[in-house]
């Protein structure tokens, strides 16, 4: 552990370009995946929060279950679709960061949809009558809920990002862990572990943890500022 800590510090301080490439790719892939998953997931979550229809609870059960999708399964499904012999093979996306973004997006969209649905439904419970009094349309209602719930939703996005950036099973299958092309933090950790270079693997893990801490700390401070203004 001490070795790993020392090494982690050294790696960061040395500004090793390979390391930064991996860190930046990790962030880029997972941030874009989170962004796309938020657009899709928040639309689904807010729509479910304001809608009542037959089969709604079945939809909720499915989405909640999809939160537990094993990354490897997602990886396999995306692989089978993006493979040259698969239906989307002509796109030539396998073994690219785009493939990794697609896999992570699929993985975390249900998380964002399910968690945001819960938050927005609670919020809607409070606002619904006022909105009806305004004669607000359903879209207007969804937009207002998303805006007023934005600070709570930040935590939802963070949960999605956390799952995406920490995930290895899917990205290693669809990305291939190709050096300088699709190698991210987690696949690098898996690689170093398989090389038996446990201190280096652990050091990379600590850098990942540090990133997670910084992102969480940022979101936390945004939220507490918002809470002080009674906006969250």
């Amino acid at each position: 552990m001490g070795d790993a800590l020392h090494l982690a510090g050294q790696l960061v301080l040395s500004g090793d370009p390979d390391l930064w490439e991996i860190v930046l790719l990790s962030l880029r892939v997972s941030l874009i995946a989170t962004l796309i998953a938020c657009i899709i997931g928040l639309a689904i979550g807010s729509l479910l929060a304001v809608s009542r229809f037959r089969g709604r609870s079945a939809v909720l059960v499915v989405i909640n279950a999809l939160m537990g999708l094993p990354p490897v399964v997602v990886g396999l499904i995306v692989y089978l679709n993006l493979s040259r012999s698969g239906p989307l093979g002509f796109l030539g996306l396998l073994y690219t960061p785009t493939a990794m973004i697609i896999a992570q997006t699929i993985l975390i969209t249900p998380i964002i949809a399910a968690l945001s649905r819960q938050i927005l439904e609670d919020l809607n419970h409070e606002y619904a009558e006022q909105f009806r009094s305004f004669g607000l349309s359903r879209i207007g209602q969804m937009k207002a809920l998303l805006w007023d719930g934005r600070f709570a939703l930040l935590t939802v996005a963070l949960a999605g990002f956390g799952r995406a950036v920490a995930e290895v099973g899917a990205v290693i299958i669809v990305g291939g862990n190709i050096d300088h092309l699709t190698r991210v933090m987690t696949t690098a950790i898996a690689l170093e572990t398989s090389k038996g270079d446990l201190p280096l693997a652990l050091a990379l893990g600590m850098i990942l943890l540090t990133i997670a801490l910084v992102v969480n700390g940022f979101v936390q401070s945004v939220r507490s500022t918002a809470t002080r203004a009674a906006y969250a």
Partner: peptide, 13 residues
Amino acid sequence: LIPLILAALAATT
């Protein structure tokens, strides 16, 4: 946001 994402995707592709 959409063009932004498309651009980001293009860059990663």
